[in-house]
Nucleic acid binder design. Structure first.
Lengths: 341, 341
DNA sequence: TTGAAAGCGCTAACAA
DNA sequence: TTGTTAGCGCTTTCAA
């Protein structure tokens, strides 16, 4: 296929290449007539700018890198999808750096791929980064925003995990539960990634406020998956009927779904014998009737893009309500109810 | 951050920029000594090639576009992950074009984004393309390979869906089942996308070979999701105990999981009262004990990359067993057993 | 095996 | 508002 160059457009429109560039990019002043002629010529010829030539000359790539640790979990792909759509709408491509392919590939992302001048900015999703990786990222000298995970020295978008967990637990307390179990994240998860700890703190705080003593036997840890939640919940629910929890607060919907399945397999009815609440509002939460605190990962991705675009294209003033805290909302479904007694 | 240019490397290594370029890219002959000096200098300086300058000069971008219709389904993200890792290993970036953001964004992918000279090749995953879109893709004049869906005039990697369905059904027949239900794809799914039809054909062929008459009442259609499979399976399993199927072959694991959940909710035991088999070997299939025919989407993605690299870098002869049919394998778990009688 | 030099296609001063 | 022109940083002839 032959590629149409800017010179051909210029010739057909009867103007210089500079005017074509200006008309097409919107930077600099162009008369209405010239702009019209250029747009028509470009359209007729099927001209599309060469991103490489443009990037090389301008230093702008119109491409954003998204770095993330998994591609097979709902939260991550949802953030990615939200970011991708927002970027596309703004005319940006997104280059994907999935960092799960082992240490050598991970290193190359930070030492090579991100340095090739291919991106204008980077979005890092729930990444547990080493200090060295953070410094590499910062050394890029490009706008950088984190989503979901706390990255030292990097602006990060994340819900208030303590408040979210507090809200879910409060809901269960409000229904009259006093023996409330918790499915949390495993300790090894906590090191860089404070989410499990914070969600547990919210849980504990809500109990404390209600004057309910914390019972360590009612807490089990898993890995945020359905399967992990299933097995951990079986531990909690397998106890004496008198001592087992009447409600479970899971730190993720996937674990919550696992808890619902575990309850069924133990012959317990949800919500009659045990209520279950989660966090996320996962795609399948509705199907499971799972009460949850929704966070909105697609919006989080889009919000991250807003913040970046604000820095990349200050003139467009993208009315970013950047520092409004991220929203979350209790969604009550059929998995929670008053305790039986 | 200051960017190190090829000229600085050349100077430090005491050679010309041309030699640096040759030494680093591996094209053209360079003496061992020169190569050594260049590598050392590049390393010391932390030099990373500017992909834009390189692309502009050479016409190669070292970037592949992956176009896909969903980001929230296991199959697609698995293919993406497999492709991404293989590409990274070869030093390629991947730019993501998710085509689910509505018609305007979809159009822009084909009319603008893909034409910006940013990619060397394109992988299209299970895309139902209009003839016009196909022609746009072909007009790129770049290597192009489809995965999972049949694209007219485009080389496509896909398992033999008829054979896969045949295998799963045969497994159920071999266990002694004769009343075998099928959860298939809805007709509207079929128009461009022959997968549901082919899987149904495999099912019907296996029945026919075994001399089992086809019973239309045992076939229900859904949308390939857990929820859809759940509802469709309830229809099948809600029938008179005498007339309900003793086994269900679902055209996807997600529908198979839905069927397992539906059976439980109806008080039926799996596999005692009803066996369930699926297709995919979804991440959660093991957790559900779901017997399935595995396809290997990560490998499919990697295989697509092999084919592309073979075209992009013929010299590297990537020993691609390109035309070996894609593998699949029956994985027997606890959801299938002999019928009760 | 090496270096000089001419682009790759576009953008952004600068001058008009 | 427009055109001229000098690069952007690299690759790749071509000649040595």
């Amino acid at each position: 296929m032959q590629t149409v160059s800017i010179a051909e457009v210029a010739q057909r429109a009867g103007v210089s290449t500079a005017t074509v560039s200006r008309a097409l990019s919107g930077r600099g002043h162009v008369s209405a007539a010239a702009k019209d002629a250029v747009l028509r010529a470009a359209h007729d010829l099927g001209y599309v700018v060469s991103s490489n030539a443009s990037s090389l000359a301008s230093g702008r790539t119109r491409n954003v890198g998204v770095v993330l640790p998994f591609l097979d979990r709902w939260y991550f792909t949802s953030v990615l999808e939200g970011a991708q759509q927002a970027l596309m709408r703004a005319g940006y491509d997104v280059t994907l750096y999935n960092v799960s392919g082992g240490p050598e590939l991970r290193d190359r992302v930070f030492e090579e791929f991100l340095l090739r001048q291919r991106v204008d900015a980077v979005i890092a999703v729930s990444l547990e980064l080493t200090p060295h990786e953070v410094s590499r990222l910062l050394a890029l000298g490009k706008p950088l925003v984190g989503v979901g995970g706390p990255i030292p020295d990097v602006r990060t978008l994340a819900i208030d995990d303590v408040a979210v967990a507090h809200l879910a637990t409060e809901h269960l307390i409000g229904l009259g539960h006093t023996r409330i179990g918790h499915l949390g994240g495993r300790p090894e998860f906590d090191s860089d990634f404070h989410l499990p700890v914070q969600r547990r703190q919210g849980y504990e705080a809500a109990l404390a406020e209600a004057g309910i003593p914390l019972d360590p036997d009612l807490v089990a840890n898993a890995d945020f998956t359905v399967q992990g939640g299933y097995h951990a919940a079986k531990q909690l629910l397998g106890a004496h009927p008198r001592s087992r929890p009447t409600a479970i607060f899971a730190a993720s919907d996937e674990m919550g779904m696992g808890a619902i399945l575990a309850a069924r397999d133990l012959g317990l009815s949800v919500p009659h014998d045990v209520s279950v609440a989660g966090i996320d509002d996962h795609d399948q939460a509705d199907f499971f009737g799972l009460t949850t605190v929704a966070q909105f990962p697609r919006e989080q991705g889009a919000r991250a893009v807003d913040i970046l675009l604000e820095q990349l294209e200050p003139q467009h003033d993208h009315a970013v309500a950047a520092d409004i805290p991220l929203p979350f909302a209790l969604v009550v479904r059929s998995s929670t109810a008053r305790p039986r007694d």
